[in-house]
Amino acid sequence: MLARLQRAFTLWLVFTAAGWAAVWATRGRPGVAVAGAALCLFGYALVLAVECLLAAWANRRDPAPPATAVQWLRAWWGEVCTAPRVFNWRQPFFSNRVPDAPQGRGRRGVVFVHGFLCNRGFWTPWLERCRDEGIPFVAVNLEPVFGRIDEYVEIVEAAVRRIEAGTGLAPVLVAHSMGGLAVRAWLQARQADARVHRVVTIGSPHRGTFLARHARASNARQMRWGSRWIEALAAAEPPQRYRRFTCLYGHCDNIVFPASTAVLPGARTVHLEGVAHVAMAFHPVVWEEVKRALRAAPSWVSGEPAGGRRPAPGGLPEDPRGGSRFS
């Protein structure tokens, strides 16, 4: 369903821009023609800029390392370049370009769980890489698109079962944004700790996000900063579960902010500098962390979080500037 909606929206944008340009060009107003077409095609860049400004404001007192103006500019430009490839190309037109490959007896696999307003096409570069390296994988479509996060439990369950059947091993779950909450909802509903090797979340609103403050969709309301749903989920989870998690977060995340809302207490945390929300999923360090999780021995999750010092109660290193940081 989402692919059809985004395909229709993309085509509407292109035809609107072309129509505007044609009408004003024939009237001898080339400047108006170009300006209007550019606004249709690149107006989203202004929206991203507003989101970045809001995030910078919300991060003023956050324990995450503060971002410089140059880092914000770099993050904004990276998102301007990345967003169209995801929302206007991969997801609407090529969501099924790389089919699932859950088979690989004895080789640990990956379940990919996308975020809000996304589908499995979001992960296309990752799926191609897994295919080329022979890593078993399944990528889900979370539907209904605007349903409650609780409704995605069965979708995650089915994907994990496919990987379990194909490999004989507990998978690594990789989740972007809202997908991290879907994984946590599944873990809690199914009490599935023993069926998960590791969980890697990328910019997931584990404690909600300020941007969802006035959201109306059911799943978006659940992602409000400090929502009752999030608080109830956290209260029900055993603290040791978070030791299975690696939380990648960033001080230039334009969707999930304040920045530290994307980490869990007791989890391994990795801070990504100067990268925004969608582009964050394709940062080279993310792939390194997933490969690390795939190689990890099962006993890794039974003790302290691997790599680095014990996180503070808020989930960040005791000295945010001294934790894992990548640019």
Score class of each variant (00 low, 15 high):
269 T>C: 13
140 V>H: 03
22 A>L: 14
224 R>Y: 08
39 L>E: 03
72 W>L: 06
62 D>L: 06
130 C>P: 03
55 A>F: 08
29 R>V: 10
236 A>L: 01
13 L>H: 04
102 P>S: 09
23 V>M: 05
138 V>M: 08
306 A>F: 07
56 A>Y: 00
255 I>P: 02
246 T>L: 06
120 R>W: 12
181 L>F: 07
312 A>F: 06
303 G>I: 04
158 A>D: 08
70 V>M: 00
12 W>Y: 09
255 I>E: 09
150 D>K: 14
184 R>A: 14
223 M>R: 06
12 W>T: 15
256 V>W: 03
95 S>N: 13
231 E>N: 09
324 S>F: 10
308 G>F: 04
48 L>S: 06
155 I>V: 15
226 G>Q: 12
273 E>M: 11
327 S>P: 06
31 G>S: 04
48 L>G: 08
322 G>W: 09
114 H>Y: 08
245 F>A: 07
76 W>V: 04
64 A>F: 07
240 Q>G: 08
32 V>E: 11
283 H>S: 07
24 W>A: 14
219 N>A: 05
269 T>I: 07
115 G>T: 05
128 E>P: 05
214 H>F: 14
213 R>T: 14
155 I>F: 01
251 H>F: 05
191 Q>I: 01
123 W>I: 12
243 R>N: 15
295 R>F: 01
96 N>Y: 03
14 V>Q: 01
16 T>P: 02
87 F>Y: 02
229 W>A: 15
44 Y>G: 07
136 P>D: 04
22 A>Y: 05
4 R>C: 04
287 W>S: 10
229 W>D: 14
239 P>T: 08
102 P>M: 08
75 A>T: 00
103 Q>C: 08
159 A>G: 05
66 P>E: 03
241 R>N: 12
278 V>R: 02
247 C>G: 02
305 P>V: 11
33 A>P: 09
17 A>D: 02
126 W>P: 01
138 V>P: 13
125 P>L: 11
275 V>E: 05
309 R>A: 14
244 R>E: 10
79 E>H: 00
38 A>W: 00
271 H>P: 04
60 R>T: 13
118 C>M: 11
91 Q>C: 14
